[in-house]
């Protein structure tokens, strides 16, 4: 696709067959395999080179930095400090430990809830009724809105005298009083969880929807003939048919959830009292804002390892058991 049309004149045209000998055919096959190998590498090369340059290399650079005391701004050259940064993280940085816990709490809530709500929405908008596309679009709108914009809007709504509290006050007739959601250590992470799910659930709704639409209608018909209820249809037809979709949804939500950053940066800066600090946020705060590049890289490295572990565990748990 990168080359102009003219470089492949034979494209699409049937090439006349020529009679071949068995021997030359074998030679041709060898040549064909070689060509296949070469072409494979060539076609993958642009993407691989770019990934290498702009993802893998910086990651390796970060790995290297994590064993040094490198600083963002300093007249002194970085020094090799061995495992000092790792020791610091695990023994003398309570915020790091708190960040780790918060990150996993966030993921532990967001992954099942967002996946579940996404599926619920998908089932809703999978109905064959008029105007259903409009609803699909509406549910997807937060996904296309910048997370920075979304975070600013929600910060407004979470104010003590903001919309959320006003709403709670109204529907409970004043029985329940809201709080300063983002300034209360007990509610801040929950508030960010709600906003994050609201923002991203539309995406996973679409993924579930794609899964739902690959399930043949005949299966439902057969189930209905057997007198299956709507719930039984879901359990026996829909859910088994969504297996691979589920794996995809879980993996993508998990990765996104563990990388939580922008919402924290815009809304709470890790506060109040560390209740919303996350690993990526802590890495940026240390490595960039407080200029300790080496230590920030260490936190990133630990983060990568943890995420990889989670991914592997997830892979194991969701493997095909048959």
């Amino acid at each position: 696709m990168t080359t102009p049309i003219s470089t492949s004149p034979a494209a699409g045209l049937p090439v006349p067959e020529t009679p071949r000998q068995a021997g030359t055919r074998r030679a041709t096959r060898g040549a064909a395999l070689r060509r296949e190998r070469r072409t494979g590498l060539t076609m993958a090369a642009p993407a691989l080179v770019l990934l290498l340059l702009f993802l893998i290399l910086p990651v390796l650079l970060a790995f290297g930095l994590s064993f040094t005391n490198a600083r963002l701004i300093s007249p002194n050259p970085p020094r090799f400090v061995g495992l000092d940064n790792f020791l610091r993280a695990f023994t003398s940085d309570p915020v790091f430990l708190r960040s780790t816990i918060n990150t996993f709490v966030f993921a532990a809530v967001v992954v099942p809830v967002q996946a579940g709500l996404g599926l619920l929405l998908a089932v809703l908008v999978n109905q064959k009724i008029r105007g259903v596309t409009a609803f699909r679009v509406i549910y997807f709108i937060p996904v296309v809105t910048s997370i920075v914009v979304v975070s600013i809007l929600w910060r407004f709504m979470y104010q003590p005298d903001g919309l959320v509290n006003n709403f709670i006050d109204t529907i409970t007739f004043g029985a329940l009083q809201g709080t300063a959601w983002l300034n209360n250590p007990d509610t801040a992470l929950g508030a960010i969880i709600v906003l994050s799910i609201w923002q991203a659930v539309g995406f996973h709704m679409l993924i579930w929807l794609s899964g739902l639409q690959t399930i043949p209608e005949e299966l439902y018909e057969a189930a209905r003939m057997d007198g299956a209820s709507v719930w039984q249809q879901f359990v026996n037809v829909t859910w088994p048919g969504l297996r691979s979709t589920m794996v995809f949804v879980l993996v993508t939500i998990t990765i996104a959830a563990l990388g939580l950053f922008v919402q924290i940066d815009v809304m709470t800066q890790g506060g109040p009292v560390n209740s919303t600090t996350t690993l990526v946020y802590h890495a940026v705060r240390k490595g960039y804002r407080e200029q300790e590049t080496g230590y920030g890289a260490t936190i990133s490295l630990i983060f990568f390892v943890l995420v990889l572990l989670v991914a592997l565990v997830q892979r194991y748990l969701t493997r095909d058991k048959d």
Partner: peptide
């Protein structure tokens, strides 16, 4: 680093 640490400590105390 003083600035960032002070802000965090003071906010934690506020909360």
């Amino acid at each position: 680093v003083i600035s960032s640490t002070f802000e965090k400590a003071a906010k934690d105390i506020m909360n």
